[in-house]
């Protein structure tokens, strides 16, 4: 994971607490599973694997940009019913 630019302590805020340095990733799509086995099961499927960019954590898979609808369709085909949560503001 990228750490560039995040290691140095930030310039202090004028109103007390210092600002925390962050890298902002916008419009990221993820699949989050309740258990690691389910994540493995999904990655083991060739069609789904091609729509996923990789595994961020044991439970979280990174979706390739623009493939969200196809992912939902594929998951439904294999009997899963993902809860779709749209992004917040950023």
């Amino acid at each position: 994971m990228s750490k560039q630019g995040l290691n140095s302590r930030p310039v202090g805020r004028s109103s007390g607490a210092a600002r925390i340095p962050v890298k902002l990733h916008r419009n990221v799509s993820l699949v989050k599973t309740s258990d690691a086995h389910l994540a493995e099961e999904l990655l083991a499927r060739k069609k789904l694997a091609s729509l996923l960019a990789g595994r961020l954590t044991d439970h979280v898979l990174l979706v390739r940009p623009g493939q969200e609808a196809l992912i939902v369709e594929e998951l439904r085909k294999i009997g899963q019913s993902p809860q779709v949560i749209r992004g917040g503001n950023a």
Binding site: L24, V28, T33, G88
Partner: peptide, 19 residues
Amino acid sequence: GRRERLRLYKQCTVLEFGS
């Protein structure tokens, strides 16, 4: 219950911290 097993977060924001 089955639905709770899997969530697709669509076009969300992820904050990456240094530590």
